[in-house]
Amino acid sequence: MKISVLVVDDEPLARSKIVNWLKKFDEVAEVQEAQNGFEAVELTQSSKIDLIFLDIQMPEMSGFELLEKIEKLPLVIFVTAFDKFAIEAFKVNALDYLLKPFDKERFENAFLRAIDQLKQIENLEFAEKLQSLLESQKGKVFLEKITVRLGKKISILEVREIKWFKAEGNYVKIFAESGNFLIRDSLLNLEKKLNPQEFQRIHKSYILNTNLIQELQSASHGDYHILLKDSTKLTLSRNYKDKFCKALELKI
């Protein structure tokens, strides 16, 4: 994982020491600095911060006062020359308390604890999002049948029989095993109703039944040709390639 770290200390040398050590860790994507609480508040409001190394005694605004102004607290490791604040620090759920002067080994232990904690948080958030997605899908009914007209005859077409949809102006042409039909609809509207595990948008003009794919062939300008089992060849546009590959778990 990659994290963003904020170092808050009114002493330039103290900040520089921590920043230099942080830059040696692959997990650190970005390190920002603040020399006082006001700068730190602005940075937490303008960017996502995962971890703060925070001095306690600073002019005008202490580390504790700073935390009260942050809406969504990141992990906090206090960095201070005074041990008298330790109890209060852990009352605000600080992950660790580095007492100046501290050596590199002590710093690394604190940082690695933070990484472990952030990984646990990340896993928990992923599980919650997955559960939310599953809950949202409960009871959701995808389109199973489409009413089509052929002359004076109206028929019920099973969606699973459809090979692909093609946009034609204000209409959509359906290519199915039983024939071709024209309906007044849009691909955008159909895309919302179709089961994404079976139908995917491959082009601004096409939605394809992915069960019929036989192979993909590289084409020019980042596009691909999709060869179907009946030898039909359709184009996978580069604009839809990433979403298509993600849905089908493909790497091309």
Rank of each mutant, 00 (worst) to 15 (best):
D96V: 01
R113Y: 05
V76R: 03
E191S: 08
L112S: 09
K166A: 15
K192G: 04
A114T: 06
F181Q: 02
E128K: 15
K145I: 12
S155L: 15
F111P: 02
K138M: 13
D83F: 12
N109K: 10
K152R: 13
N195P: 01
V159F: 07
L118H: 07
K193C: 00
L187Q: 05
L143W: 02
E105Q: 14
K69H: 07
Y171N: 08
Q120D: 11
L124R: 14
L143C: 02
A86T: 08
L66M: 11
G151W: 14
E198L: 06
G169N: 10
K119C: 05
N93A: 15
E105I: 12
T147C: 07
V148E: 03
R106M: 13
A167H: 08
L112H: 09
D103L: 05
K100G: 13
K129I: 10
K145L: 09
K129T: 06
F111W: 10
P101F: 11
I174D: 12
I162N: 01
E108H: 07
F78E: 03
L95E: 05
L73W: 01
V141C: 00
Q137F: 05
L133D: 10
L194P: 07
K163Y: 09
L67H: 08
Y171Q: 08
Q131H: 04
F90Q: 11
V159G: 05
V141E: 06
E135S: 08
F107V: 04
V76L: 08
L134N: 14
Q120P: 00
V76N: 04
S62A: 05
I156Q: 15
K72L: 08
L66E: 03
S186W: 10
Q137A: 04
G169C: 08
S186M: 09
P196M: 06
E144P: 00
F165E: 02
I70E: 13
Y97V: 00
K91D: 13
E128Q: 15
T80E: 09
I156C: 15
F107T: 03
L95S: 04
K84V: 12
E168L: 12
G169D: 10
V148C: 07
A176S: 09
A176R: 02
K100Q: 12
I87E: 11
A89W: 12
K138W: 11
K129W: 04
F78Y: 13
Q137N: 05
T147E: 13
E71N: 08
K104N: 14
L182G: 06
W164A: 00
A89K: 02
